[in-house]
Design a protein around this nucleic acid. Sequence first.
DNA 1: CCGGATCCGGGTTGATACTG
DNA 2: CAGTATCAACCCGGATCCGG
Lengths: 215, 215
Amino acid sequence: MRSYRQFCGLAKSLDVVGDRWTLLIVRELLIRGPSRYSDLRAGLPGIPTNLLANRLREMEAAGLIERDMASAPTPAALYKLTSRGEALESVIAALGRWAGPLLAVPEATDVFLPHWLVLPARLYLVDRTPQGPAVSIEVRDQDERVTLEARNGSVRARVGPAKHPDVVVTGPTAIVWQLLIGKIDVARAQAAGVRIEGRRAALRRFGPRPPRNAA
Amino acid sequence: MRSYRQFCGLAKSLDVVGDRWTLLIVRELLIRGPSRYSDLRAGLPGIPTNLLANRLREMEAAGLIERDMASAPTPAALYKLTSRGEALESVIAALGRWAGPLLAVPEATDVFLPHWLVLPARLYLVDRTPQGPAVSIEVRDQDERVTLEARNGSVRARVGPAKHPDVVVTGPTAIVWQLLIGKIDVARAQAAGVRIEGRRAALRRFGPRPPRNAA
DNA sequence: CCGGATCCGGGTTGATACTG
DNA sequence: CAGTATCAACCCGGATCCGG
């Protein structure tokens, strides 16, 4: 990206992360941890492959990521965030929070990959029964699996299958999300194509973070 | 900007504010309040005028700004942030904080307009003698004037001249900033071309916010 | 299949000139 | 003052191709 040539924190940050796709690549690495090229491509539907390669080079030069040639089994290059790159989580969180109203209406052509649940789950979901036993949910859609856990009052989220899920939820991620935040109930979710297997009471452990209201 | 077509808060936010110059225009409006076209241009060195006009149209359509035809004295169009646009302050603050290390080395070709002090002053500066009487500083450079005030423990910053400044500081804004955060002392600032008139003790009221360290 | 590189058309940006 | 018009250069998006 061309520099704005302004000695201003905002402008300097945008000189580094203002390019198209750059912050979305950081998002993927925050969600997945160290990732291969093809995993990044899969998580960024729409990105041209040449652009991904360019961005990864630029981001490495800017100190946001490192290229790890870890490779015992197969010589697979791994891309991982540096601490500087990880520090962008606060920026991404701010943008994610600002987006709230924009997420009211999912457009028909939008893609919603299940692993994108991970960051908003950490930001927005709370364990509504902190004293209860730990529960875990596995969300399945489009050949991806994501695990949400509620324990000791906090919610954790990560990609991959759950070991002993209390409930497995299969179906369009957008509907599953609306179910998790309590915008729709189980019946409506099922009518919209979501299949629920296991102890569905476990779903009630999750809810939206109550808005922090002023005094 | 083309949409990413991803149902993800980050992507949706970037669909709206990810275009080049957009967040810098928001910065200007946060600093100055309602502004005229030519004020925005002056605060955004390097922006092509057609691009500014385009962005203002897009931002109005996106609900970030409003065009006010307030016009008693002269028919001057005023651009002002909506509440939705003002809410971007948290995003800009996050990017500004992340920029910290990038501001260590000012490049020779960088511009530093005095009014850009306002946001970092609010973020980074504290009143180091909260029990002291209110003091005000006027910073002058390139035909701009900015006022910083310390009173009751907090720092306020705004564009425009001070009414009764305790001290007037004239010279390159980059040097003045380093003086304010205590990175250089008065002698070095003067050697670098800064002129200081008035009670220079007032300068010591300002200092960088102490880093919030973990337990 | 993985990890890119290459090529091309079109849209966006940047620079400048011009106008009501 | 507040933009519009014009045009070159660059970047992005889409497709294809290539070496392990």
